[in-house]
């Protein structure tokens, strides 16, 4: 009876198999979670989503590009209203250029064109440029908040936060 068995019986085999698979699954899950974590950056350099854009008097009639490179925002003053337009094309997300000679925003990717008031009129862009929330702080300076957008086709351009009376 003291004979040492060289082989596992059926029950022992399945126990060993279960332990082995559990260990393998745990190791894989650990590795995968590390890989998943690796795909996110350690430091995020995204620009801030709201900024102070000076006094309403700083802006002249027409398109102002001073915040375009820093924050991706065009300030447009027209017909007594000051609005903050997103500089992202509503077709596929390229960055249009303001063309002062033709008085239009023109996208270099697929040729979409927008009037100064943001309305799309040529090329494939299906809807007007988006407005950002614009308001005055207690010091009377303009605050543009990019987390809130107002879309023309949804009738949101009448919203009091989508423009400033100047």
């Amino acid at each position: 009876m003291s004979e040492v068995r060289k082989h596992l019986n059926r029950r022992e085999f399945f126990s060993a198999l279960t332990v082995g698979w559990a260990a393998f699954a745990a190791a894989s899950a650990g590795l995968l979670s590390l890989a998943f974590r690796f795909s996110y950056p350690n430091v995020n350099f995204e620009p801030e989503m709201d900024f102070v854009a000076g006094l309403p008097e700083d802006y002249e009639e027409g398109v102002d590009e001073r915040w375009k490179n820093g924050f991706g925002v065009w300030m447009v003053k027209q017909e007594g209203k000051l609005v903050a337009f997103s500089n992202i094309c509503t077709h596929l997300g390229c960055i249009p250029n303001w063309q002062p000679t033709d008085l239009k925003f023109k996208c270099p990717c697929h040729g979409s064109g927008f009037y100064m008031n943001g309305i799309n009129f040529e090329g494939p862009a299906p809807r007007p440029l988006e407005r950002y929330k614009i308001s005055l702080n207690t010091e009377g300076k303009i605050v543009v908040d990019k987390t809130k957008v107002y879309r023309y086709e949804k009738g949101q351009w009448d919203h009091p936060d989508s423009f400033l009376e100047v």
Binding site: N69, G70, G72, C94, I95, P96, P108, C109
Partner: peptide
Amino acid sequence: ANPTWAPNPA
């Protein structure tokens, strides 16, 4: 790379 500028033509 600059997220607020695109080459023309892109």
